Computed example of a mutant assay.
Amino acid sequence: MFKGAALFITGLKQLLARAELRSVLWRMAGLLLVLMLLLTGGVFWLIDYVANLWIPEGDAWYWQIVSWLAWLLAFVLAVLCGIVSFVALGSAAVAPWLDLLARRVEQRTGSELAEQTSGWMQLVMHSLANSVRPLLGLMLWGGAALLFFWLPPVATALWVYGGVRFLSFELIDTPASRRNWNYARRKSELNEERWFYIGFSGLATLLLMVPLLNLLVIPAAVVGLSQHLVNREE
């Protein structure tokens, strides 16, 4: 788990330290910022809606405690929804730039894979298509969370794990696509190094909650995982 978190930090450092990677980052930052601002409004609405469903009515002595707990758990659930939406839509929107980012990491190590010949829209649609099956898996975790809706801590734990698992699929998408990995191969990779990817995606999830820093998460993940897979293949 700690190795996965350390790899993400390494990817973030390389993204900011190397000029050829920063030049790609600035191209996609504006689009990611617009998407992030739009989703932020939706997150605040969802926090208020879910919290009001969970807050009990009455004047019992424990009402204030339960109220604060409901707001906290509603915040976690709503923010995770925003994170999942941001990563899925953001990864698709900037897919061509992410592919360029991965290629430059490979070039630096002398292990460049074949260049993608697909057009801009094809790469975007391919990224969206790769999100479908992981999204179905996330919906199953969401369904399990709904079964425990009136036990907020359990519902939150299930939703958080499902969200981190989904993000693992999303963050590995660009380097996996460059290697022509299908869904089964990606799932096998994530299962074989489960704790590594939980640490990687878990730290990414936390950083996605930090304004402006969240704009760096997707490209940093691509840099880190591209480097990781190249090193392992060598």
Rank of each mutant, 00 (worst) to 15 (best):
M1Q: 10
M1G: 13
A5W: 06
A6E: 10
F8D: 01
G11Q: 04
L12K: 04
L15P: 05
L16M: 15
S23V: 15
L25G: 03
L25C: 07
A29L: 13
L31Q: 10
L32H: 01
L35G: 10
M36I: 13
L37G: 06
L38H: 00
V43C: 08
V43D: 07
V43R: 09
W45K: 07
L46A: 12
L46E: 10
D48H: 15
A51H: 02
N52W: 11
W54I: 14
I55Q: 03
I55D: 03
G58W: 02
G58D: 06
A60D: 00
A70V: 06
A70I: 04
W71H: 12
F75T: 15
L77E: 04
A78H: 07
G82Q: 05
A92N: 00
A93F: 08
P96Q: 04
W97F: 03
W97P: 00
D99A: 10
L101G: 01
A102D: 07
R103D: 12
R104E: 13
V105R: 01
G110R: 05
G110V: 03
E112P: 02
L113S: 15
A114D: 08
E115R: 09
S118Q: 08
S118F: 08
W120H: 00
M121G: 00
Q122P: 00
L128D: 00
A129F: 11
N130L: 14
V132C: 05
R133A: 06
P134Y: 01
L135R: 04
L138R: 01
L140N: 03
A144G: 11
A145D: 02
L147C: 00
F148W: 12
W150R: 08
W150P: 00
P152F: 12
P153Q: 02
A155F: 01
T156F: 01
V160E: 02
L167P: 07
L167D: 03
F169H: 11
L171A: 11
I172N: 12
D173Y: 11
D173V: 13
T174K: 11
S177E: 14
S177I: 13
N182T: 08
A184C: 14
R186V: 03
K187E: 12
E189I: 10
N191P: 07
W195F: 09
F200Q: 05
A204T: 07
M209P: 09
M209E: 14
V210R: 03
P211F: 03
N214L: 01
L216H: 06
L216C: 10
I218D: 02
P219Q: 04
G224L: 04
S226T: 13
H228W: 15
V230G: 13
N231G: 07
N231S: 12
R232Y: 13
